[in-house]
């Protein structure tokens, strides 16, 4: 099984380092044809406006939408979550509209409001996950077919899953904890289900 990591901008190298520690074959994806032989894709943290622009210029939008609709696993972290959303609270960037969620960018404020905290995540063992939020988005609307995996103390959703698709507002790739990457690999290895088929 080979996992692609979208490498147009952002912390793709950090995701690849974790996948390598899990002995997974991975590929940096910058052009559409590179998506042909991957079983899953991670859209990393980065600047969502930049990711969006570069995905448009190099015609990456449709192939990513096609692979997600064909049931391949796709995971977005932070900027990646913004890209997977159905709608966002600003006009820019234009998301891929793959998950039935509404997302707000920079939901906690500017960089000085970035934070880290322990988080309980459904589907993992009982140990809390150390979650790092950097100029992070938050899920404002959770669709019927979307399962919330983690919330903050005030109830805001920060990790969600919809069938073969998942999104986290924080950055597991900045920690040494491989559990969410393993969770994603299990999704990628499961038989194709198609977006929106529930969990």
């Amino acid at each position: 099984m080979r996992i692609g990591v979208l490498a147009v901008q952002g912390d793709f190298a950090e995701h690849i380092a974790i996948l390598r520690r899990l002995n997974v074959d991975c590929l940096e994806v910058r052009l559409p044809e590179q998506l042909d032989d991957v079983s899953g894709l991670i859209i990393p943290g980065g600047e969502s406006t930049t990711l969006s622009r570069l995905m448009s210029i190099y015609n990456l939008r449709e192939p990513v939408q096609d692979m997600a609709r064909a049931g391949k696993a796709v995971w977005g972290t932070c900027a990646g979550m913004i890209m997977l959303a159905h709608e966002i609270t600003e006009a820019d960037p234009v998301p891929l509209q793959l998950m039935d969620i509404g997302v707000r960018r920079n939901a906690f404020g500017r960089q000085i409001d970035s934070f880290e905290q322990e988080l309980d995540i459904a589907g993992l063992d009982s140990r809390p996950f150390h979650a790092i939020f950097i100029r992070a988005p938050v899920v404002m609307r959770v669709g019927d077919k979307v399962k919330t995996l983690a919330t903050l103390a005030d109830g805001q959703a920060v990790a969600v899953r919809q069938g073969n698709l998942m999104a986290t507002a924080f950055h597991p790739e900045l920690t040494r904890d491989t559990r969410l990457h393993q969770y994603f690999l299990d999704l990628a290895a499961a038989p194709a289900g198609g977006a929106g088929r529930g969990s």
Partner: peptide, 15 residues
């Protein structure tokens, strides 16, 4: 924290 400070720079990579 140093993690969120240096982590922000990691999000700028390739940019």
């Amino acid at each position: 924290t140093f993690t969120v400070k240096s982590g922000h720079a990691q999000m700028l990579k390739g940019g």
